[in-house]
Amino acid sequence: MKLYIELKGASGAVYRYKLAEDADPRTTIAGNFVYIDAKGAVLFAGETNNLIGATARWPEAQTRHGASALYTRLNVSGASRAEEHTDLVTALDPVMNRDA
């Protein structure tokens, strides 16, 4: 897996995400996160006040959708996190966001 990936939102903005080794964010900072499959498709996009919570749906993502990597992006501002989340979900239509 690549150390960094860039995702383009519906607005045209590009967001850079960093690989969380072993699918462990290792931080309690707020941010956005995505689950990716082996082909690089975004399966789920989320935002949280504590990135440790980014693993909440990880087991489901692995078993049902073949998730192979978790990427995070630190983003302390709640408004910015929500805007980025909406932008990415609109552009990428992740399968797990449809049934969330």
Rank of each mutant, 00 (worst) to 15 (best):
A41M: 09
N75Y: 00
G31W: 03
R64W: 09
S80R: 10
I29W: 08
N50C: 13
R73A: 04
G31D: 07
T72V: 14
L70E: 03
V42D: 01
N49H: 09
R26K: 15
A56Y: 15
T72P: 00
A30L: 08
N49F: 07
A79D: 12
A54F: 05
A30Y: 02
G66H: 06
G78R: 11
L43T: 03
A30V: 10
I29T: 11
L51D: 03
A38C: 12
T63F: 06
F44L: 15
V42P: 04
P59G: 13
G78E: 11
V76P: 06
R81Y: 07
Q62I: 14
R57C: 00
N75K: 08
R26C: 12
N75V: 00
S80I: 06
A67W: 02
A38R: 13
L74H: 03
R57F: 10
T55G: 10
A45K: 06
L74R: 10
A38N: 13
N32V: 11
G78P: 08
P59I: 10
G66M: 05
S77L: 10
Y71L: 03
S77Q: 08
R81N: 04
W58I: 04
A45M: 02
F44A: 06
E47V: 00
V76H: 10
G31T: 06
A61S: 13
G53R: 13
G31M: 06
V42N: 01
L43K: 02
A38G: 12
G31H: 03
R64L: 11
